[in-house]
């Protein structure tokens, strides 16, 4: 139903001082976003701890699929190496490359999910930067008070609650529906926002929209939650 099927997805490159960290982040990201290309540039060529500009350049070149690349970094010289790689790649025909200084694991997972759901480079970058700290959002009660919104409540029945892969599935579906919705006041398309709610099995979720045409979308998300995320894979 989305137009993303024949569109190329944004790719990711994970730059870390440690090869193990880079590969570990890629493993987690790929589990939740199986169609997204994730390349790694971890450690030095001799297997030591550090970052290497040429490795970053190679990873960007091999990750590129035509939709752009978001580079995730750990600390210090990883950012410098990534920026230097971009400067050196400047003459090449690499489409769009953006460097994120968001959190490596959470940001990587959020970026992967946004890429998987067809976001462009700027969308994926923004997803990777979204902070886990809570930000002001509509309180679900305001929908009831205003009378114009649509709110439904469900209980999380699956073991993981709204975490890990279920959270990723939730965000993917919410994004694909194209309706602005909130879950317990958080943007339903923000993986980091949803993870920050810490909703475990048995918790109650309020899914709401102010969009008069959005009731079916809310129903779909409620259905997903009530199914225990069983029907998605």
């Amino acid at each position: 139903m989305t137009a993303a099927t024949d569109r190329r997805l944004v790719s990711l490159v994970v730059v870390s001082h440690s090869d193990l960290i880079a590969k570990g982040v890629a493993e987690v990201v790929s589990q939740m976003s199986p169609d997204v290309v994730v390349e790694t540039a971890g450690g030095t060529p001799l297997g030591g701890v550090g970052t290497d500009v040429e490795r970053v350049m190679t990873a960007i070149r091999s990750a590129e699929r035509g939709a752009g690349v978001v580079v995730l970094t750990d600390l210090g010289s990883a950012v410098l190496s990534a920026e230097t790689a971009l400067e050196l790649l400047g003459d090449d025909d690499v489409v769009a490359v953006k460097i994120s200084d968001g959190p490596l694991v959470e940001g990587g997972v959020a970026a992967g999910v946004r890429a998987q759901t067809g976001g462009d480079v700027d969308d994926v970058l923004a997803a990777s930067l979204a902070h886990v700290v809570t930000r002001p959002a509509d309180s679900p009660t305001s929908h009831e008070d205003g009378g114009s919104g649509y709110l439904r409540t469900a209980t999380l029945v699956n073991a993981d609650g709204l975490h890990a892969r279920p959270a990723a599935e939730f965000v993917k579906l919410a994004t694909s529906l194209g309706v602005k919705m909130t879950v317990n006041g958080k943007d339903a398309r923000s993986l980091l926002g949803i993870l920050s709610l810490g909703l475990a099995q048995g918790a109650t979720v309020d899914i709401a929209t102010d969009d008069p045409g959005g009731t079916a979308a809310v129903d779909r998300l409620i259905e997903l939650v009530e199914s225990g995320f069983s029907g998605q894979r």
Partner: peptide, 15 residues
């Protein structure tokens, strides 16, 4: 310098 220093000094002096 970029390819062999390692650490932040490589990208800095290289640039």
């Amino acid at each position: 310098l970029i390819s062999s220093v390692g650490g932040a000094a490589g990208p800095l002096y290289g640039t």
